[in-house]
Design a protein around this nucleic acid. Structure first.
Length: 233
DNA sequence: AAGTTCGACAACCGCGGTTCA
DNA sequence: CTGAACCGCGGTTGTCGAACT
């Protein structure tokens, strides 16, 4: 049996939001709070799908949303995080205060064409899963669409499951020490669970350590747990 | 000046995970 | 325990203005 549609599309407003609709949504959420998106439109007097309301709020109306151009620093961070996390926009957005997953996704997709045109250049951090250029019979360069495997969410349960695997690997208390050997065990666990590519994991962790070193923090107390936690919002 | 192409981004869609009755 | 509803995510499409021919 299939799922029922999230909402009836009949009689619902679509397309760009008007100022009045924005105002109604803001006023309702300010007085009733977020959540219950399915019933929100009716209560707020909006002729919109609940998902549409949620999207509008999350991406544009929510307080603290940063508008405007992506700064070079943000761009660098996006590139680095994308090389580490892939197309997990919500995770990447979580590392960029005020930026939304939709904004970052749009930014990446519109700039990806530029990257493709610059393929072969030495731009840092371009993911290996990006589209590739291929020469046709006439030697012309054509874009080749590369279908990326669907992203796998790293949930708290994933970590718990992996901790169990760690126990099997000899970490009975699931505590991960700070040497690379143990990191590799943890990485193997993640890879076994298809959570992430092992090499990407190690690369990401090493970057994480570098960040900590830059921040002049004491690494003695740093455990892999905090790294994984850092990947979670 | 008119038509076309391109880039940016807002919005929609479908799917999978989670929650709850 | 089961299934429907809810929620959040990533992929894709639609729209509009700017740049170009």
């Amino acid at each position: 049996m299939g799922r029922t549609p999230c909402c009836s599309k009949e009689g619902l407003q679509r397309g760009p939001w008007t100022t009045i609709e924005d105002t109604l949504l803001i006023q309702y959420i300010q007085s009733h709070g977020e959540g219950h998106w399915m019933s929100l439109p009716k209560k707020a007097g909006l002729l919109r799908c609940g998902k549409s309301c949620r999207l509008r709020w999350m991406n544009y109306l929510r307080p603290g949303i940063k508008r405007g151009n992506i700064t070079p620093d943000e761009e660098d961070l996006i590139v680095r995080l994308h090389s580490l996390l892939g197309n997990r926009w919500s995770l990447i957005a979580g590392r960029l205060p005020g930026r939304t997953d939709n904004e970052i996704k749009n930014y990446w997709n519109t700039n990806r064409s530029k990257r493709l045109n610059n393929a072969g250049s030495t731009e840092r951090g371009v993911s290996s899963v990006e589209g590739q250029l291929k020469k046709d019979d006439r030697g012309c360069v054509a874009k080749v669409k590369v279908h990326q495997p669907k992203a796998i969410r790293v949930s708290a349960n994933s970590i718990i499951r992996n901790n169990n695997i760690l126990a099997e690997l000899g970490h009975h208390d699931a505590e991960v020490s700070n040497d690379l050997h143990d990191h590799k065990h943890f990485g193997e666990a993640l890879v076994c669970e298809n959570v992430m590519d092992f090499d990407v994991f190690i690369q990401g962790y090493e970057e994480y350590q570098q960040q900590l070193l830059k921040a002049d923090q004491d690494l003695d107390g740093v455990h892999l747990d905090s790294f994984v936690d850092s990947l979670l919002i």
